[in-house]
Design a protein around this nucleic acid. Structure first.
Lengths: 203, 203
DNA sequence: GTTGCTGGTGGCACCGGGTGCCCCTACGGT
DNA sequence: ACCGTAGGGGCACCCGGTGCCACCAGCAAC
């Protein structure tokens, strides 16, 4: 699951609030990458962004959010994509397609995405925080699977499909990050393919 | 993935250190269940256990560890079970069997297990922390799958099998907790079955 | 009995993330 | 000139977590 926010997040183009937020996120990303997430204090980030500790918390909410950015927007996009997918396409295929489209970034955005995902997947504190974000994603996917299958969103199969596909997505991200996969979309397709086949050769 | 520690954890039977630890964990569990994880402070737990804040941290390490208990021991048991499983049994079957055996509790231990898992699966702070524990489990399973398949533990398939089976295990735990499954072993078998079949009907 | 060591403990100061509250300042409308 | 409002800074506080030292059993050696 990725992290970059779309081109337009706020309402106005020169929103001063969004401006300081962007400055803070950028400063944070650089410092985290250089020195490690836990080694950098909020005060240092604020200083690097030319603002105060208090403003940091007001604009980004928490230290982890400085890395995650506007993830809620991505979850919303995922939900919209699933809602709009036709009922004729198989469930797993629809989920895969939604994951692929949500994570379709412009080439110039890929370096920053790498930076963020690298932090999220390697720094323990961010790894822990990720579970909370994943839970949001899982709720969306489970809801979709439940709707398609005429089941409750809390039934075993919808939950299982949601967590398993999300596990596949994060594994695909790891593979892409390590350079083992040519592209994110490719890694996602490979992982979902294995999942849908029930891991042939391991049974 | 469960949490209860085995009958003997320490070296001596009347280890005073183990004794205060057990008292603290019990007090913490009761308070967390009654008031919620974040609402209870370390000082309150220490007071309820008849000890001090400093001793709390010395004996249980962190607030989350008061709920998780000796999880490392479970990971070790899982690793041992996988090591000893024969090479003739299919990989997924071996992983399922290991999960089932690791989570085979005596009936009298089930209430406490429910209490702990309920907190871990519902309290956001503990949910976040769980990802770090799951990562340990995933490393063990990925290592086993890699060995059986002659691959690298960091290759896509071993990682994917590890995260997907663990996702199945946690989903099974949720189903068991909510009362939808008669037993933990049953829920695990159902979830692994779905996973191994590649979710028939959704493709 | 005194000495000395050791392990479990408590107290204390400190750090860092996070929040509530108040004040200041710049800006736009009237 | 007069406001209202929004973004920002400062400050005090809470809480989880750690390092350090001081205390006090118990126990071995002399």
């Amino acid at each position: 699951m990725s992290v970059l926010h779309g081109p337009v997040r706020g309402v106005r183009r020169d929103d001063p609030r969004e401006d300081t937020r962007a400055r803070i996120e950028q400063a944070a990303l650089e410092l985290f990458t250089a020195a490690g997430f836990e080694q950098v204090t909020i005060e240092e980030i604020a200083a690097a962004a030319g603002t105060s500790r208090r403003t940091f918390f007001r604009s980004v909410g928490s230290k982890a959010d400085a890395v995650w950015g506007d993830f809620d927007g991505h979850v919303d996009r995922l939900a919209t994509l699933l809602e709009r997918s036709g009922d004729d396409v198989p469930v797993l295929t629809a989920v895969l397609a939604a994951y692929v489209e949500v994570n379709d970034y412009a080439p110039e955005d890929l370096p920053v995405l790498r930076q963020r995902m690298r932090l999220i997947l390697t720094e323990p504190a961010l790894q822990a925080h990720s579970q909370l974000r994943y839970a949001d994603v899982d709720r969306v996917v489970a809801g979709y699977v439940a709707r398609r299958g005429g089941e409750s969103p809390t039934a075993l199969v919808p939950r299982l499909v949601a967590t398993a596909t999300r596990a596949a997505a994060t594994t695909a991200f790891e593979a892409w990050l390590s350079g083992a996969a040519p592209s994110l979309a490719d890694a996602l397709r490979t992982a979902f393919g294995q999942l849908a086949e029930g891991f042939p050769g391991l049974r």
